[in-house]
Simulated assay, not measured.
Amino acid sequence: MNFSPKRKASNIILLISAFAIVSLILWNTNSFFRKFKEEERLKMEIWATAQLELIQSSVDQELGNLTLKVMGNNTSTPMILVNEEGSFKTHNIPKEKIADSVYIQKKIRQFASENEPIQIIQDGELLETLYYGNSEVLNKLKYYPLALLLIIFLFGTVIFFFFRTNKASEQNKLWAGMAKETAHQIGTPLTSLLGWNELLKSEDINPDITKEIAKDIDRLHTITERFSKIGSVPELRNHDIVAETEKAYQYLIQRSSKLVHFSFSTNVEQLYVPLNPPLYNWSIENLVKNGIDAMKGKGNIGIQIEKKGQNVHILVSDTGQGIPKSDFQNIFIPGVTTKKRGWGLGLSLVKRIVEEYHKGKIKVFSSSKEGTIMQISLRTNET
């Protein structure tokens, strides 16, 4: 992530600009809403005046027609006109609701809360009270800022995830480049070590020493191959998963504490699965090492291979302190670790190798205070 002052300043300016634009739009919308509401109020006052003129113009027919024309122009604002006796007339109210007195009373209270009622007075006497609500246009305008904020929020969310994904992609490329460069850097001294070991074999020294050095050189070669494959699509070929699992397992047995007891079992002697051995073995080693760490270097580690239908399950068990059920999914997230010291990359790397490269599945099969069982599931080529 780039934390340079220029990048920070540009982010702050962008944030302030976005806030200013949203604030301006909301302020402008609110001003327009209030102005529209004032105009609607004026229209209702004119309508109330026309209603009073209609009452007074029972003799003047021409004035009555003009008044009726003014009153007839209102086709959108719902109104309820209540006289001093409690009788009412409605305008722009659904016809099927006019006879429902409970509905009318509810509407009167609603209109009174939305707009101040207009009193029609003649010679100091209250003749009628006009209750009116917001027109359909005004109601839609009232919710426009919310819709606008929702659109802006969704748009911002899309942009956020776009940049987040783009940044994650850049980080993945960076890590892949670093891994390949590490593999390249290891390759030079590794070639030199091979030559020195051959030279040692010609000397009069214990052959067991050169044999162990050769094993460690092979190990370095395997690590180099693993790092070189990060960031690229690995080649999968049919390999015996029993032999490959046992190979990785035996390497760890020879280099682990005597306080750790290992066991290996399988219900098949040979089973071919599309594998990339260096990456698959890396997964097994990570799971076993995690189990050893969970047991604090003392306990039982077991691997069990089971073939069920066209799937093969590799179960790695330990007698450690267990994983809380709430963390069954979190432990596969990069950076999440239950250890006091650690990067939280081991299980996320295993998940990527198993699920992205080998199209399999990995999960916490079970966990308690007595220990944990991790399960890798892969598709076989056999029926």
Rank of each mutant, 00 (worst) to 15 (best):
S192F: 11
A243R: 11
W196V: 15
D204W: 05
L130Q: 02
S101H: 09
K201V: 01
F153I: 13
I80D: 09
A243Y: 12
I331W: 00
I98S: 04
Q110E: 13
F88M: 03
E198C: 00
R379F: 08
A243N: 11
S377Q: 14
A99E: 15
R109A: 14
L199E: 15
N28D: 13
I213K: 01
M1K: 09
D204N: 09
N330A: 13
K180I: 09
K215T: 12
T157Y: 13
K97C: 08
Q254T: 13
K97P: 06
E114L: 12
N300E: 15
D318A: 05
N267S: 04
Q61M: 10
K35W: 11
F19E: 06
S202P: 00
K173N: 11
N139S: 12
N311P: 00
K180V: 11
E198Y: 09
I303P: 02
R255E: 12
L81F: 09
R341P: 00
L146A: 12
L347Q: 01
T157L: 15
L26A: 12
N92E: 15
R379W: 06
R226A: 06
K140V: 05
I333H: 12
D204F: 10
A99H: 12
N92A: 04
G64I: 10
V70C: 05
V233W: 05
F328N: 04
N286I: 03
W47R: 00
I323N: 06
N166E: 04
P278V: 08
I305E: 02
Y103A: 05
E370W: 02
E84G: 10
E235L: 15
N330L: 09
E225F: 04
P277N: 07
L287P: 06
E382S: 10
L138A: 02
T157G: 14
G291I: 01
S326D: 15
T90F: 03
T380K: 03
V82D: 04
L347W: 02
E96W: 01
I13W: 06
I121F: 09
E62A: 11
L378N: 01
P78V: 01
G177P: 06
S135M: 10
F161L: 15
S326P: 02
P117Y: 09
K97M: 13
Y272N: 13
F328G: 02
E370S: 14
G187T: 12
E382H: 11
I376D: 00
I241T: 01
K361D: 09
L52Q: 06
R34W: 08
Y143G: 07
S366L: 08
F32H: 10
M1I: 10
R41N: 11
A214D: 14
V350T: 02
I55E: 14
L194K: 14
N238R: 13
N11M: 14
G322D: 07
I230P: 04
H221A: 14
S135P: 11
A112W: 04
L63T: 15
E244D: 07
F88Q: 06
T191E: 14
F227K: 02
I152L: 03
L199D: 14
N134C: 05
Q254H: 12
T29Y: 07
E62G: 05
L24Q: 07
N206K: 01
L193H: 03
L271M: 08
M178S: 11
K351R: 13
K363F: 11
S317P: 02
T337I: 08
V288R: 03
E285R: 07
N267D: 15
G124I: 03
V70P: 00
V316D: 01
